[in-house]
């Protein structure tokens, strides 16, 4: 399998074509919009967050295959979780796409999110994969907007060249 087919694997392509939990959530009490001003990708994440549980979550917006599939799978994987567990999952996901966590050897809760492991071979696409997660995080924090510029460089320290 080439790095390319690992990146654009069947699950990612399927979620891009048929995103889950797509559209506005009328019962939302937390809403945040995330933008990547470099490429124009933007997603709105709607949360129904009650008693420290993400009771429901939906998203809408547009972006590349990676960002859209990631948003779709993110909504599936955090639904029903409390804040601490959702944040823990985000942390593991982020470390995996940066290449700082080996999902096969380090214990983790990633499950089917492992299909995004191939992003680590494409450092410039880390922001695409993590945009909706950052947006979900902003919504949990009660913020209304977030932007990839605020995430920091989003590259693994090992990838900073001399």
């Amino acid at each position: 399998m080439s790095a390319l087919t690992e990146l654009y694997n069947e699950q990612i392509k399927e979620h891009e074509k048929k995103p889950r939990n797509f559209g506005k959530l009328e019962t939302a009490n937390r809403v945040a919009e995330g933008r990547n001003p470099v490429c124009g990708d933007h997603f709105t994440v709607y949360l129904q967050y009650e008693d420290d549980v993400i009771k429901d979550i939906r998203f809408e917006g547009e972006g590349c295959a990676i960002s859209k599939a990631s948003a779709s799978m993110m909504t599936r994987s955090v639904k029903g979780k409390n804040k601490a567990d959702a944040e823990q999952l985000f942390s593991e996901f982020h470390q995996m796409v940066l290449g700082e966590l080996d999902e096969e050897t380090t214990p983790n809760q990633l499950g089917y999110l492992k299909v995004f492991a191939g992003v680590r071979n494409f450092p410039v696409r880390v922001k695409c994969a993590s945009l909706s997660w950052h947006t979900m995080h902003a919504a949990l924090e009660g913020e209304e907007t977030t932007s990839t510029e605020d995430f920091g460089p989003d590259i693994a320290s090992s990838q900073i060249s001399a």
Binding site: L4, L7, Y8, C39, D41, G63, C64, A65, I66, K68, F122, V124, R125, C128
Partner: peptide, 10 residues
Amino acid sequence: GVHPHDVGTI
């Protein structure tokens, strides 16, 4: 049906 960023990566 293909986002330009994905075109750029491929």
